[in-house]
Computed example of a mutant assay.
Amino acid sequence: MKDQTRVIAALLIGAAAGAALGLLLAPEKGEDIRDGIADYINDLVGAAKDKAQAASKDIKQYSGSVYDKAKTKLNNAVNDLNEYRDLAMDTARTKADELKEQAQSKFNEGKTRVKNGSDEVNSAIQNS
């Protein structure tokens, strides 16, 4: 089946090429035909060029838009992370200050107990 398709395709391509060569190499009356074909090909090339330029412009606009959106999302994520970092640091500082105050309070309590105990021992020694 593939061989038959190839043969038919080759015949069609050969026929088209022969017809094109016949038109291009025709006597002077064919000069008008050759000019028409050349104009048609130039029009096709111009249209393809215009479409390529339009597609290029669209791709540049789209890529710029995608870049801007990605940049905005990244900046928002960085800002969110900075806010979370600051919040975590503030929470850690607050907890550290609370623990410091509790430790100082316990230290002062212990210091007072030791002083009271030593005062009692000193009193007991002096009274004996």
Score class of each variant (00 low, 15 high):
52 A>K: 12
38 A>C: 00
57 K>Q: 04
40 Y>G: 05
22 G>Q: 00
65 S>P: 01
47 A>M: 12
38 A>D: 00
64 G>E: 03
41 I>E: 02
88 A>R: 11
60 K>L: 07
65 S>Y: 05
57 K>D: 06
77 A>L: 13
93 R>A: 08
84 Y>P: 01
65 S>M: 08
56 S>V: 02
92 A>E: 07
45 V>P: 07
44 L>N: 13
28 E>L: 11
53 Q>A: 13
91 T>P: 00
31 E>M: 07
75 N>A: 15
78 V>D: 03
95 K>Q: 14
70 A>H: 06
57 K>H: 04
88 A>S: 10
43 D>P: 00
79 N>G: 08
36 G>I: 00
103 A>T: 06
23 L>N: 01
37 I>Q: 01
25 L>H: 08
42 N>C: 04
24 L>Y: 10
34 R>F: 05
69 K>D: 11
82 N>F: 12
70 A>T: 08
59 I>C: 00
44 L>C: 12
50 D>S: 15
67 Y>A: 11
31 E>Y: 08
65 S>E: 06
92 A>V: 11
97 D>W: 02
99 L>F: 15
64 G>C: 00
32 D>R: 08
42 N>Q: 12
105 S>F: 13
59 I>F: 05
89 M>G: 01
68 D>K: 11
94 T>W: 04
25 L>N: 11
35 D>E: 08
60 K>N: 10
68 D>E: 14
23 L>C: 02
93 R>P: 00
38 A>L: 07
53 Q>E: 10
61 Q>H: 03
74 L>V: 03
63 S>W: 02
106 K>E: 05
90 D>S: 15
59 I>V: 08
62 Y>T: 07
25 L>P: 03
49 K>W: 13
53 Q>H: 09
43 D>Q: 12
69 K>I: 08
84 Y>L: 15
106 K>V: 05
95 K>C: 02
27 P>K: 09
35 D>G: 07
35 D>K: 13
50 D>W: 10
78 V>L: 11
44 L>I: 13
34 R>H: 04
95 K>V: 12
60 K>V: 07
95 K>Y: 07
69 K>H: 06
53 Q>L: 12
73 K>W: 03
45 V>H: 12
85 R>W: 09
48 A>I: 14
64 G>L: 01
